[in-house]
Each structure stands twice: as structure tokens, then as C-alpha cells.
Amino acid sequence: VSRGDLTARLFPAMKRRYDELSIVAKDFDAMVERIDVLVKAREALLHDISHELRTPLARVQLAVGLARQSELNIPQSLDRID
């Protein structure tokens, strides 16, 4: 787990034991599962945020490009950027 392997599980190898170590293994597996869920959620959020920012940024870049083509386009491009 410390190396990033969030598929590691202990309880399946210890499920025949009925002592404190099997309880710790079960809790460890629950912890690793929760960390895995959180890491995947963070990655999905970052993907969604970057995707949502691309379109507005592309539109602003287009408006700036149009403004640079001609001085007549500057007021319209500034309105579009606003």
C-alpha cells in the first residue's frame, strides 16, 4: 500500500484466524478500500474540472485571436470575452 498498490488485501489470507490480527487485517482492508475510493474520486474530479475548463478557455483564446486580427474586432471580442 505504501508503494501505491491499493489492491493489497490481508483478510483473505487470514480469514481462518479468529484473533486480534484477523480483526486488524479486516480493518486494514477496509481502510485501503476507502483510500482507493478517495483516490479514484479525486482523479475523476480533476478530470472533470480540466474538461470543464477547456471549453471556456478555448472560447477566450478564439476571441483574443479574432481581436488580434483587426482593430475593428476588438470591441466585439472584448464583449465576447466578458
Rank of each mutant, 00 (worst) to 15 (best):
R68Y: 08
R68Q: 02
V32Y: 04
A8L: 15
D82E: 15
P12E: 03
H47C: 01
P56N: 09
D48F: 09
Q69Y: 13
R80S: 02
L45H: 09
V1C: 12
L10W: 03
Y18F: 12
D48L: 04
R42L: 12
R34E: 12
F11N: 12
R80Q: 08
R59V: 12
L62G: 11
A44N: 01
R9G: 11
Q76C: 14
S77T: 01
D27C: 05
E33K: 11
R34D: 14
L21I: 08
M14P: 12
A41H: 08
V1N: 08
D27F: 02
K15L: 02
R34W: 06
K40S: 06
L6T: 11
A25R: 02
E52L: 08
D19C: 07
L38Y: 08
A8G: 07
R54P: 05
E43H: 03
V32P: 02
V37M: 13
P75K: 03
I49S: 06
P12A: 02
L72A: 15
Q76H: 15
I35C: 01
D19T: 06
A8M: 14
S70E: 04
R80H: 13
S2M: 15
I49P: 04
L45M: 09
L45S: 04
I74K: 08
L66S: 07
R68H: 09
E43N: 07
P12T: 12
Y18L: 11
R80D: 02
L6M: 14
R54T: 01
A25I: 13
Y18P: 07
I35S: 00
L66C: 14
Q61D: 15
H47D: 03
D48K: 05
R9Q: 15
L72T: 14
P56E: 07
L38F: 04
D48Q: 01
A30C: 14
V60G: 00
I23E: 12
L6F: 10
L78N: 13
H51N: 04
I23D: 02
E20T: 12
R59M: 12
D36I: 02
L57H: 03
K15P: 08
R42M: 03
Q69E: 07
S50D: 11
R54V: 10
A58I: 00
R16A: 13
R54F: 05
A25Q: 04
S50Y: 05
M14F: 05
H47G: 05
E20N: 14
S70G: 07
L10A: 00
D19L: 12
D48N: 07
I49R: 05
D27S: 12
D27Q: 13
D29L: 09
P56L: 04
V24S: 03
V39H: 09
E43G: 06
R3I: 15
F11A: 06
S70I: 01
R9E: 15
Y18V: 14
V24E: 13
A58W: 10
P56G: 08
M31W: 14
S50H: 00
P56D: 00
A67F: 11
